[in-house]
Every structure is written in structure tokens, then in C-alpha cells.
Amino acid sequence: MAVFTTVSHDEIAQWLLDYDLGTLRALRGIPSGIENSNFFVTMERDGQTRDYVLTIFERLRFDQLPYYLHLMAHLAERGIRVPAPMPGKDGEILRTLKGKPATIVTRLPGSSQLAPNAQQCAEVGDMLARMHLAGRGYPRQQPNLRSLAWWRETEGQILPFLDDSQRALLQDELAFQSAFFGGAAYAALPGGPCHCDLFRDNVLFEDAGNGQSRLGGFFDFYFAGDDKWLFDLAVTVNDWCIDLASGELDAPRATALLRAYHAVRPLDAIEAAHWQHMLRAGALRFWVSRLWDYHLPREADMLEPHDPTHFERILRRRIATTALPWT
């Protein structure tokens, strides 16, 4: 959520006249992330202040955005703790700001836990399963735009930056995943709307007192799409349940997250058979995207691209090591 498009206090105040949220009191750019321009916005209405998040979309088109925004609204209406898009006075939740699509959503409570414990991982697993089930019946459809087709498209752009070992890893894994995605077993895996990017910095925990925390919610749904639920689970486990130095799965955290998920949405035999394949797919997806962001960066205020070697290491470990089961 770096700032690519800069806006002034007065520009935002004018834009917010199309909403019934009150008077703008504070505006602050959000430095983390690499896709959109994001700002914390504090509004005052009837003597009370409330915080929101304003997003200006840098890559996504107007025709793509209703899927994400209405998915968030769909989930929020069903009790899943996600940001709720705010309608303007005309009822629309998507508008234009400085010639780009923009929206404003409620701000969730809490902060990210970058060193989560097993209990926090269990809370994430529980809510991820509930989110998947709540997404059933969502009428809009859009594929995960960062899936196999995008990996193949991006391969040629990043290969020149890789050494021989990395090039072989990328090409071999793309061949493996192409065969997997094209098979009958993959087609039989259950799925629906997925977050597809549920990293530690896209989840908030709030203080529950006595040194405890509770899940505040999931946010940043702008990589969401229709995909296999097992892929969404694998992406989550690959970030929440690993030793950062080695990329190895951390057994207590992984077991806690998987058991909590399984208790809400039991995983079936075909998902168990292809769990390691999906862990590899999740690692490949983020290795490719981080290589692309790192070697082909865009200009932005506060932009800090992530180190791609992190997911290279994870991918190599997922290939070499049998995945932990969830029972």
C-alpha cells in the first residue's frame, strides 16, 4: 500500500463531499505494500470521529473492481470481519479520484502480528474457513488474476534476471504446476471466492486485555478471485506458519491453523492428496510476483519491494520436504 498517487488534504475533502461521512479531520499515507495508493482518513460527524481507509487503484481497472468491493460487502453482511465499502450519496461504492478508480472503506481495529503464535494462527484458520463458506452464493465471478496464466506470462520478463539454478527451478516448477492445474484432480478440488493474499500484514489483531489478543479482521482483498480453497489455505500457511530464516513449516503453528480450518470446513481426501502441490503453487505464485516487483519496479513514494529470495527458499523447501498433515 505504497503511495503512487499523491493527493492533498483539500483534494480529499472535496472528493468526500460525495459521501455522508462528515468532515475530514486527518489524512495520512500508508507506507506498506506495493500495489495501490492508500490513506488513513479520519472523519468527524456529530462530534464523533471515525477512521476509514481510502484506496486509489493503480493497476486494477474500473471493470475489475466491482468483484472485489462487492465481495467485501457480501462477506461483511455475513458476519466476516472485513472492511465494508462505504456508499456515496448516490449509493455507489466506486468513484474516480485524480482520474483513477477509488473507494473508501471502514478501518478495522488492531494491528498486524508479524510474529504470530499458535493461538493466533488458529483464529486465522477458523475465520478463513468461515470466509470461504460465506463466499458461497456470491454472484459475481472473476478468476484469480495472479494464477497460472499470469505466472507463464511473467516468466519471460523475469528469466533474464535469474542465474542458472533459479532459471531451472522456475521452469521446472512451472511445468509441474501446468500439469497439475490441467489434470482431473485439480478440476475436482472445491473452490469459490478466495482472498489469495492472506499474509500476516493483511490481518489485524486487537488487544483483548490480560496480554491476550483477538482477531480484528482480514483486509486488502484486491488480489481476491475465484480459486481453489486449498490454494488460499496454502498461501496462508506459507506465510503464517513458517520459520522465516529457513522457510520450513513450523509444526505447532501449522497444526493449529489447519485443525481450526478443518473444524469449520472439513478438507476431503482429494485435498489431502494434493496439499503439498498447493503449498508449492502458493510459493511459486509469490516468488514470481516478488521477482517481477523487484526487478521491474514502478516509481512510488515509500515503495519498498520485498526480497524475492524469501519465496525462492520456501519453494525449494516445499519441493524437498513432505508437507504436514492437518489431522
Rank of each mutant, 00 (worst) to 15 (best):
V3D: 09
T6W: 03
V7W: 10
S8L: 07
H9V: 06
W15G: 01
L17T: 09
D20W: 02
L27G: 07
G29Q: 08
S32K: 10
S37G: 13
G47A: 11
Q48R: 15
T49C: 08
V53E: 00
F57H: 04
E58R: 04
R59V: 09
R61I: 00
P66V: 05
H70N: 08
H74P: 01
A76H: 08
A76S: 10
R81S: 15
A84K: 15
K89V: 07
D90W: 05
G91I: 11
G91Y: 08
I93R: 15
G99E: 14
K100Q: 14
I104E: 06
S111E: 14
Q113N: 14
A115R: 15
A118K: 07
D126A: 10
A129R: 00
R130K: 13
R130H: 07
M131S: 02
L133G: 03
A134S: 12
R136M: 02
G137C: 01
P139A: 11
Q142F: 08
P143K: 14
L145S: 13
S147E: 14
L148H: 04
W150L: 14
E155H: 11
I158R: 05
F161K: 12
D164W: 07
Q166Y: 02
Q166H: 12
L169M: 10
E173N: 05
A175E: 13
S178D: 13
S178L: 03
A179R: 09
A179L: 06
F180I: 05
F181P: 00
F181T: 08
L189C: 05
L189G: 03
P193W: 01
P193M: 05
C196H: 06
L198A: 02
D201Y: 09
V203P: 03
N210L: 15
G217T: 11
F219A: 10
F221P: 07
D227W: 06
F231A: 07
V235L: 13
V235Y: 09
N238S: 12
I242E: 05
D243T: 14
L244N: 15
A245G: 15
G247E: 04
D250M: 03
P252N: 05
A254D: 01
T255H: 04
Y261A: 05
P266Q: 01
E271G: 02
A273S: 13
M278V: 00
L284H: 09
W287Q: 08
R290T: 08
L291I: 09
W292G: 00
D293Q: 09
R298L: 10
A300W: 12
M302W: 10
E304K: 12
P305Y: 03
T309H: 08
H310K: 13
E312I: 07
E312Q: 14
I314V: 15
I314Y: 06
L315Y: 05
R317V: 15
R317D: 01
T322G: 06
L324S: 04
P325E: 04
W326I: 10
T327E: 15
